[in-house]
């Protein structure tokens, strides 16, 4: 290849890379097969790279559209299911009241009614959870200064129970973050720890440290622990651990936490082993106003 042809080729390659840097993956170089010409091989490689990136962008848009449609569908369906479910719940309450006045009600019928009532309640919790989960992506989270310690003390007060001890490491930082999101994350994690702890005294420990431009919070408990085989699945929607007696889960809480943490730029992970309790760690990027 002559010097002028080489220069022309280099210019074409540079132009294509510049376009790719501007996220324009539509350009292609007309490659001539010259086995011993490295410039042609580079042009071929850049073409391949651009085609793959273009395809990835298209695929990502397609998946994003599918996700949005699925979430719209979940929201609409959940919303539409609420009304008939309210009606069922009302009818069950009326039926229970009617039967309570009657003297001929067998204990079996009362037991079955209680079961219906509990199932309706569980379904309501699931529908509310789906509604909350599907709304997360469409919301924007305005940020302001919030006092993590004050918020956590209020959450702990709301969860106060005789058999629950929540220890809060202090001081906790002030965060430039969305207060509601922080409360939702912490509330779900504390609820999760309480739900699965069957000990006489459920101990929950909330801690914080700053590291590499991030706030890292942890919520530890002395519950039954989670087998590592479930660690990757536990944050997925509708996934809950194999049931233990008396433990009912919708499988929405931790999925909601993950979505909230990730949509605000953080990460979440779990450290746990059977019989050794569980610690959920999540991060919030350190940010400042302006």
């Amino acid at each position: 290849m002559t010097q002028s042809l080489e220069n022309k080729r280099l210019e074409e390659i540079l132009e294509m890379i510049t376009a790719m840097a501007a996220l324009d993956f539509s350009k292609r170089i007309d490659v001539k097969v010259h086995p011993d010409d490295p410039l042609e091989a580079i042009a071929y490689g850049v073409n391949m790279l651009s085609e793959e990136l273009q395809n990835n962008v298209i695929e990502r848009r397609r998946l994003s559209d599918i996700n949005r449609h699925l979430e719209d569908f979940a929201y609409t369906t959940s919303h539409d299911l609420k009304s008939p479910l309210h009606a069922v719940q009302g009818l069950v309450t009326i039926l229970k009241n009617e039967l309570e006045e009657s003297e001929e009600v067998s204990p079996e019928i009362s037991r079955l009614l209680e079961m219906i009532s509990a199932s309706v309640l569980k379904m309501r919790e699931m529908i509310d959870g789906i509604l909350e989960y599907s709304r997360l992506d469409t919301q924007s989270y305005p940020v302001s200064w919030m006092d993590a310690e004050k918020e956590l003390k209020e959450i702990i007060e709301l969860h106060a129970k005789q058999n629950v001890k929540i220890i809060l490491d202090t001081p906790m930082p002030a965060l430039w973050f969305n207060r509601i999101v922080f409360i939702q994350i912490m509330d779900n994690l504390i609820n999760n720890s309480m739900k699965y702890c069957k000990k006489n005294l459920c101990e929950i420990h909330i801690a914080h440290h700053s590291e590499g431009g991030e706030h890292s919070f942890s919520v530890s408990d002395n519950g039954p622990g989670i087998d590592p085989v479930f660690h990757a699945k536990i944050f997925e929607l509708f996934v809950s651990l194999p049931h233990q007696e008396g433990m009912e889960s919708t499988g929405i809480g931790l999925a909601t936490v993950k979505k909230l943490v990730e949509s605000t730029g953080g990460k979440i992970r779990l450290e746990s082993a059977p019989g050794k309790g569980a610690t959920f760690y999540f991060t919030i990027p350190v940010s400042l106003p302006g």
Partner: peptide
Amino acid sequence: VKSSFQRILGNF
């Protein structure tokens, strides 16, 4: 692979 072209293809 012997040439640069073949190396690109091979790496794919």
